[in-house]
Design a protein around this nucleic acid. Structure first.
Lengths: 209, 209
DNA sequence: GTCTATATTGTGATAGAC
DNA sequence: GTCTATCACAATATAGAC
């Protein structure tokens, strides 16, 4: 039963507060209050609030990049894709504070802008990868133009579903179920699947409701 | 050549500033500076910054509700739908400050929450209306479940396209082309159209690129 | 209606004792 | 490492003269 270092407790509490009331509404005082430590102590561990945000972003970036290393030429099954989406939405949910005030946060911490954009690009590329794999296996048929707009749509949805969903229940920002987002993503893909595979995908999608 | 009242100039300048640098980053001082009036003067016309936001929201709400009064049982053509989407995205672009910091803004002005939600509901209903009309005309075929997820997807995209798009060029928030969003919306609908109508819709969508 | 102060408050951040 | 001040500053908002 090792005791957690204060530094890590600060990160952990900050993430929780950011997610539940929004990063712009969280002051350094609120964080230190939550942990029953002094503001001075907080500033001993982090020289600014921005540093906390950036370190949390580091974690997010790491998690995302790990997740997005999709093998280029593998045969991906519908199940694997569902699992991938599930993990993706879980990761987004874990750092949802980022997405809920995305424009705002990125406008205030401009070093994060380019990094976030890079992750977005990688997401779109991962979706394209999966779709290409489906095409090679004959599960999916699309022309290049459709594929482009589909992958962009998938990226948009992966990005904003959590924010869109919390709009419906802005009162308790604590609870988030990633399932509904996965369902929605699958239904973006289904129309482009071969008729035979659509029913299987539809059945799979129900599990996420 | 009537001169514009100060009160209206404040609203106009605020909207422009909100849209270009984000509502949270706009101070009352910045607004009065932009207009070459004193902060005191601004507070003579509006008793708080929140009042400015709320009055702009009134305008937004009015514009939106006007737009969303879609006739229930009319036969809507693909062209009419394209035109509707065009107007919708223009309206969103005009008040894009709202969407770019949506969660944040709604969390700080809670009177706006319920009103915004109501507008969202009306949007979804309008999409459903259009789709039902398409179905009656035999242009579209979907079951009820698909229709639900499609309309939600349309609402999400209408809501967040502008924010998603400005992510790509966060440097100049001034310019926004609504066209790409309309294109994306159409491509959400196309898969559900009857084969004969798909090509027509595809051609139409190109005009918005 | 408009201006020039000025009050007030909240927040990020630092200094120095323990 | 942690605490108790305390500073500095920016933003909202008000008071009172013109």
């Amino acid at each position: 039963m090792k005791k957690i270092k204060t530094r890590d407790r600060i990160l952990q509490a900050s993430l929780a507060l950011f997610n539940s009331v929004g990063e712009p509404n969280v002051t350094t005082l609120l964080i230190s209050d939550e942990l029953d430590i002094s503001p001075g102590n907080l500033y001993y561990h982090f020289k600014s609030k921005g540093d906390i945000v950036e370190e949390l972003f580091d974690h997010y970036e790491q998690d995302m990049l790990d997740l997005l290393t999709v093998p280029e030429d593998a045969d991906i099954s519908l199940e694997q894709q569902g699992f991938f989406l599930h993990l993706l939405f879980e990761t987004v949910a874990r750092y949802r504070f980022l997405y809920q005030d995305l424009v705002n946060v990125l406008s205030r911490y401009d070093q994060l802008r380019v990094r976030f954009k890079r992750i977005q690009k990688k997401k779109t590329a991962a979706f394209r990868n999966i779709c290409e794999s489906f095409r090679r296996q004959g599960i999916m048929m699309t022309d290049q133009e459709e594929l482009g707009s589909l992958c962009e749509q998938l990226t948009l949805t992966a990005c904003y579903w959590s924010a869109f969903d919390t709009l419906s229940h802005l009162d308790d920002r604590e609870s988030v179920d990633p399932g509904r987002g996965v369902y929605q993503m699958m239904h973006l893909i289904i129309p482009y699947l071969a008729p035979a595979d659509r029913d299987e995908a539809r059945l799979m999608s129900r599990d996420y409701l």
